[in-house]
């Protein structure tokens, strides 16, 4: 398991790995998986939460942007934006996760992978109507008019606040706005071989992601003046995401 290190969201110059048509290519397959305390996270199952509370998730998704392979100071662009939906109500699907297959990757040895969580500021200036229906950014359900921003991630479910077995509080923690975009990098050796598929797991542990988040007092965060809890969520990405081959 390799950690995913959050990067400062500032511009910096890196080299670019060109991909010539006659270069040999392979496939990189990323398996995004939701876990809770290390175990596959199945929606509509209940887990221990802060104190006496119990938590049940009903929807888990996020935008993953600017996927790049890293080689020294150079990068190879893989994918601009992907909506990763981790809402699986059966165990087998939860264990399998969300698969993103990236073909035609230049062969070679890479040092790691970079990606952003959310919608980068340049794309976040646009609106769903600016995109064709094949793009995740065309989804009006992931755009929040009041914020003039895409919804970067959705973590929804119900909480048993009293620990008595009754899920008495619905919650919807949605992140968004440029200030909450996060980019990170994982250092992990990745070898792409000609005609072969390299598999990588990207695990997101929701117990770690919600560490310190007071859902009971802030079950929704749709007011820009009240972002304290969702800021905690995006700042927890670094401790909740791990990579493995």
């Amino acid at each position: 398991m390799r950690p995913f290190i959050l990067l400062a969201v500032t511009a910096f110059v890196v080299g670019f790995i060109s991909c010539k048509e006659d270069n040999p290519e392979g496939t990189l397959t990323l398996h995004f998986k939701a876990v809770y305390d290390g175990q596959p996270l199945q929606t509509f199952t209940t887990h221990p939460f802060e104190g006496i509370q119990q938590i049940q998730f009903t929807h888990l998704s996020m935008m993953v942007a600017d996927l790049q392979l890293v080689k020294g100071s150079a990068v190879k662009d893989l994918d601009d934006i992907e909506l990763v939906d981790l809402s699986f109500d059966n165990l087998a699907a939860a264990e399998a996760g969300y698969t993103l297959t990236i073909p035609n990757v230049a062969t070679g040895s890479y040092d790691g992978i970079k990606f952003g969580l959310g919608v980068p500021p340049d794309l976040n200036q646009k609106k769903p109507a600016d995109f064709s229906s094949g793009s995740p950014l065309s989804k009006t359900g992931y755009y929040w008019v009041a914020w003039n921003s895409y919804i970067f991630s959705k973590t929804e479910g119900r909480l048993d606040t009293l620990g008595n077995g009754t899920l008495d509080l619905g919650f919807a923690m949605h992140t968004g706005s440029d200030a909450l975009y996060r980019a990170g990098q994982g250092t992990i050796p990745i070898v792409i071989e000609e005609g072969k598929t390299t598999n990588m797991n990207v695990l997101l542990d929701y117990k770690d992601l919600l560490q310190g988040v007071d859902i009971k007092s802030h079950p929704q965060n749709h007011t820009q003046s009240d972002t304290s809890e969702i800021v905690k969520i995006v700042n927890n990405y670094g401790t909740s995401i791990t990579l493995s081959l």
Partner: peptide
């Protein structure tokens, strides 16, 4: 928050969810 916009978002006043 009347919670309407989550499912009935502009400009369609609907969503594809």
């Amino acid at each position: 928050d009347a919670q309407c916009g989550h499912c009935h978002n502009a400009p369609l006043m609907a969503t594809n969810d």
